[in-house]
């Protein structure tokens, strides 16, 4: 059992939990994830490690409530327990001094890209951050991102905070300005990552994305997380979650994410009563 030590509601449907996981806290690196199983009946849910404290032995996760498991997770209170937390999983982000980098976070992806951004910033890169959400209420980690970027651009679809529009617009402007960009990382919904990659491809700037395929064991055993990357089949859980975005077949990924939509509705109905 793994105890919840702290809880923060970051937005109406976005929650942060701090978990007591000393062994994982010792090993995890930015970009890696954990699998969470709430209870005996629970499914295995992948969530990125948003932050960690090696001394205190804690990790934090940030998630958006989209279905049954994330809803139940959002209902957990401090001192309650989670049956299983497995990790650290997947490959960690390559942190190097690239030069000038752009870190793009979409929706809850902002929480996921935050530790990566911080690591890149601490490694001496000049970092531009672009964070976007549908509206003001869904924006998270803006202050934290502000602290670890040289410049931060905020966008919302409805203009309720920052610039009105999608993250791809300021991105294109920066690329068009002719300034040399050495490296780009984008984390968010698959559809956002797809369009970020479409935007950067003509400029030939390496663009890393963190994919979120459906997962089960996350140890390389089942193959449900397979994605086509550069014409090859890769497993998101062990070969990823980060890949060269220009090589990823996003349409297949987006299609595969729909596999259990009908069942997810049935699942939700069990808690909505």
């Amino acid at each position: 059992m793994y105890k919840v030590l702290d809880k923060k509601k970051l937005a109406s449907t976005v929650t942060l939990l701090k978990l007591d996981t000393p062994e994982i806290a010792k090993k995890v690196k930015p970009g890696q994830f954990v699998i969470i199983r709430l209870n005996e009946e629970g499914e295995r849910l992948p969530l990125t490690v948003n932050d960690f404290d090696r001394e205190k032995g804690t990790i934090t996760i940030v998630f958006q409530e989209v279905g049954k498991t994330t809803k139940l997770l959002g209902k957990l209170e401090v001192n309650e327990q989670i049956a299983d937390v497995v990790g650290p999983l997947g490959k960690h982000t390559e942190i190097e001094k690239f030069g000038k980098v752009i870190c793009i976070g979409g929706g809850v992806g902002t929480a996921v890209i935050y530790p990566v951004t911080r690591a890149l910033y601490q490694a001496g890169n000049e970092v531009v951050g672009i964070v976007g959400a549908r509206n003001k209420d869904l924006l998270t980690f803006v202050d934290e991102m502000e602290a670890v970027t040289n410049q931060l651009i905020v966008t919302t679809d409805d203009g309720s905070q920052g610039r009105k529009g999608l993250v791809t617009e300021p991105l294109k402007e920066i690329l068009d300005s002719g300034e040399k960009i050495d490296h780009i990382i984008a984390i968010g919904p698959a559809i956002m990552m797809k369009f970020v990659c479409k935007t950067t491809e003509p400029y030939k700037v390496k663009t890393i994305v963190s994919l979120n395929p459906i997962m089960l064991d996350a140890t390389g055993m089942c193959g449900v997380c397979r994605v086509r990357v550069g014409g090859e089949t890769k497993f998101g859980c062990v070969d990823g979650p980060e890949f060269d975005g220009h090589q990823v077949d996003f349409d297949s990924l987006i299609n595969r994410l729909k596999q259990y939509v009908a069942e997810e509705k049935i699942s939700m109905a069990t808690i909505e009563g």
């Binding site: 499914e43 498991t69 089960l216």
Partner: peptide, 26 residues
């Protein structure tokens, strides 16, 4: 699916008892 996925859903995750258990199976 791979048989590993299909059988893991059904056996380890008890998806044959879905929605009593949360993991779905087709």
């Amino acid at each position: 699916y791979s048989a590993n996925e299909f059988l893991t859903r059904s056996n380890l995750m008890k998806a044959y008892l879905f929605p009593e258990y949360d993991t779905p199976i087709k």
